[in-house]
Write a protein that binds this DNA or RNA. Structure first.
Lengths: 214, 214
DNA sequence: ATAGTAACTGACTGACCAGTCAGTTAGTAG
DNA sequence: CTACTAACTGACTGGTCAGTCAGTTACTAT
């Protein structure tokens, strides 16, 4: 037996990149459980199986760690949606693809979803998320405009109008996702369907020039 | 001149009820500025022009103070909406009344709105707000069902379906209100119109049995 | 006046926690 | 084997802040 160089099990030494990834993962699960302010870095360190000091070898502050972790998931979400949208035919199939990609993310990355839109807590972080929402809304505005042009219709000339519709679509999806998070028994297809029923129909009628009164 | 009993100006002694109200008001403005965690009770006390110890004569903890303040505004919002809804004819006018009351609140009570849905921060507080959202959604479900019955239509039998539509309506309004908070130049009527265009049309078509595909 | 009580305060404490530092340990190049 | 470096740690600190306490001040009833 050569009992030399024996490291504690589970305390394997890792390369910087591996350790960084492990810390990000621990951060995700810790923050998802308790929110930003309620989670101490000691708790994150413990979950990652390292000392708190090591966290500072990889991230220069609590906020930086949080933001790096958040950004990772934001990036994934954006990639998934924009990939799905880009690969679909214009019009209805495109919207369906986007909606499905979105709810797919929510389904698979439950923890990530919670962090992204339910725990912000910190003002700066909330700001970053607001920007994300606005980007998504802007993308929707873009698609709706193309759509309208394709059909030879024109939207109400009021420039804020389309923006307001897009903001509502984003809010509706987000709210539905939150609800779903607490009602997981409902299968994804039904959720997607409800989203399409509500948002697509509303949007489509509006783009045909129909308004609520008269 | 009778320079006796002279209190420092602005440090007037008040009855318990007056002081309580003053503290709640200071709390609203302080919390609205910086969020729950970022606001210290010393800051609230200073804004109210009293010592921190006095806060504890009226509220037994920071959270209790926050919740009391929140509850006050939640109550006002609920009253305004339910009052407006109750006083309107069923169907479209009813929804319009509700939407108008809602955006009226957002317009007049800007600070309150921000506190309520933008800087919860604390998990318990977020829970209270979730419950509010669910109550509102439940009320919408109720109205939609009555509406459907009145018209002799029936909604998709799937019980979760109506719930999902209602959740989306709530989310859409909330999101639009947030957007409006940053784009105040847009007049209320246009915001209300956009909300009605999106949500009413979507809801109405669905209640006529129309679905997005086929 | 005087006693009683309700409003109010300054000064304190104990816990928590982000962030630091002076090291130790384990791979790895020569 | 040795020197070098990169991964890693325990123990500490300084600041913040919710919550407390031992009072003081002003109003009110008798």
């Amino acid at each position: 037996m050569s009992p030399v160089t024996q490291t504690k099990p589970g305390r394997a030494r890792m390369s910087a990149a591996e350790r960084r990834a492990a810390i990000l993962d621990a951060a995700r699960s810790a923050f998802a459980d308790s929110g930003y302010h309620e989670t101490s870095l000691d708790a994150v360190a413990e979950r990652a199986g390292v000392s708190k000091a090591l966290l500072y070898e990889h991230f220069s502050s609590k906020r930086e760690l949080y933001v790096a972790m958040l950004e990772m998931h934001v990036h994934e979400l954006v990639e998934r949606i924009s990939g799905a949208v880009a690969g679909a035919e214009p019009g209805e199939p495109r919207m369906l693809a986007g909606v499905e990609a979105f709810f797919g993310f929510v389904e698979e990355r439950r923890g990530a979803w919670r962090i992204m839109f339910r725990n912000a807590g910190d003002p700066d972080v909330a700001l970053r998320l607001d920007r994300l929402r606005d980007e998504v809304a802007a993308a929707i505005v873009q698609l709706m405009s193309e759509e309208a042009e394709r059909k030879g219709l024109d939207f109400p000339n009021l420039p804020e109008f389309v923006e307001m519709i897009a903001q509502q679509m984003v809010g509706a999806m987000q709210s539905l996702a939150d609800w779903w998070d607490l009602h997981r028994k409902v299968p994804k297809e039904q959720v997607v369907e409800a989203a399409m029923d509500f948002a697509w129909i509303g949007q489509e009628r509006i783009s045909q020039g129909q308004r609520w009164s008269r």
